[in-house]
Design a protein around this nucleic acid. Structure first.
Lengths: 230, 230
DNA sequence: ATCCGTGCAACTGTCGACAATCGACAGACG
DNA sequence: CGTCTGTCGATTGTCGACAGTTGCACGGAT
């Protein structure tokens, strides 16, 4: 291809199933679909302008990802999030991230940690600009990057499931924009420990980091938080 | 209901999708479907006597479970298992089981560990009877029980994905029936450490246990092991 | 002989229609 | 009045048919 025109973006060639999947997942993760909400197939299909076949395939996938609950002949609902779920979510998250830290440091490629620092710098900048949304995004990015750097594809897929639901929790909570800079600062010690290849300190710090936000959220969680009334 | 008759067991009411899913999953896990093998929808549908709709839904699920690979317009194949996959599988498995051990011991309910010992006793009995299949089954049972005892449902679902693929690896390898009793004995120290509530020893032992079998398998693994030639 | 289009066959992707299932409600019966 | 039973509406489960895409074999031009 000889650059026939500046750039013309790819036309959507992904299957309907995948596009439907993305739309629904986003709606759940972003909190547009509330926990407990009924997802009626014919309704959704009409809304999205597709037939029920690809829609159902997408729902099956969401089910295995734990985002929706399918009860045979009774319909699909957005999965409810109990306090116990939150506890499980953050405890497993801690385990996975700990594993990732160890793995990244075992490889000992300094360039990797540099990428984390770049995340941090951007997060700090966004925090100073008071951009809550961007801070949240970069926060996610930081943790996603950490997992990716481990170069462990199976870990990554497990992580994705956990990560999505964490995002859902955050969205339902609309994190009161507490001290943004503090959020950014919290990541610094972790990076520094990793730069120093101090595995045990890094592990301890990330566990504390995850546990702290987990407890903070679980503390004020009502089991019917952000729940649909229908 | 006044016990009209002793008991009559429920008739199969599960959806076709679920039943198809189980059949396909078993075929893959047991090695009947070889890695790389093409899974043609129309063929499978005819074999199973169902239409393609529920079949496809089952395939989508298998895809998210990592057992098959769906390439748009090109078909579905049983996922290949490379040496790197095995390494990832066993390393994550180690992490998950370690987490489970900690969690079980934190709860400190002695009755739980007793259940593990029961598994062990049965395994030993089967080993002495020279029943390879039963030993393998109880080996699985031991590790599944460990996870279940943690009472962590999210961990359990993550585990299931890992566990299934471990079973697939074992099936493709048709474990040479080495010293069966040795397999059973290997579990004893873990149980004893747990009974003594010696968390760190138990963790160390289970990590060694998993790492040992992982290395043993990865060592002799050809990347095209048990692969379909089609 | 090689290269390039063209049609074909084998799939997968999508759709609309029909069947099966369940909960709720109303009505019959004791 | 309570219990059981039949019916109904809504929703999911399943199917067969059709549309779209891909790779490949075939044939013609160079």
């Amino acid at each position: 291809m000889k650059n026939p025109q500046a750039t013309l973006n790819h036309i959507e060639t992904r299957s309907l199933r995948e596009r439907v999947l993305d739309v629904l997942r986003d709606a759940i993760i972003s909190g547009d679909f509330k926990p407990g909400q009924m997802l009626v197939e014919t309704e959704l299909a009409n809304m999205l302008g597709v037939s029920r076949a690809p829609l159902r395939e997408a729902l099956q996938i969401l089910s295995t990802e734990g985002l929706v609950e399918i009860v045979p002949y009774h319909g699909t609902t957005v999965r409810r999030l109990t306090k116990a779920d939150i506890e499980e979510l953050y405890s497993l998250r801690s385990v996975l991230e700990t594993f990732a830290v160890r793995r990244v440091l075992e490889q000992g490629i300094a360039q990797h940690v540099a990428e984390l620092r770049r995340c941090y710098e951007e997060m700090l900048a966004a925090a100073e600009a008071g951009d809550l949304k961007q801070v949240n995004h970069l926060d996610r990015d930081f943790h996603d990057t950490l997992i990716e750097l481990s170069g462990h594809s199976l870990l990554l897929t497990s992580w994705n499931v956990v990560s999505m639901r964490v995002r859902q929790v955050m969205a339902l909570l609309n994190r009161r924009n507490s001290n943004l800079k503090q959020i950014a600062y919290n990541h610094l010690p972790i990076i520094e420990a990793m730069e120093a290849s101090d595995v045990e300190t890094a592990v301890l710090l990330i566990q504390k980091h995850v546990a702290a936000s987990g407890e903070l959220i679980a503390e004020g969680w009502e089991d019917n938080q952000g729940q649909s009334d229908t």
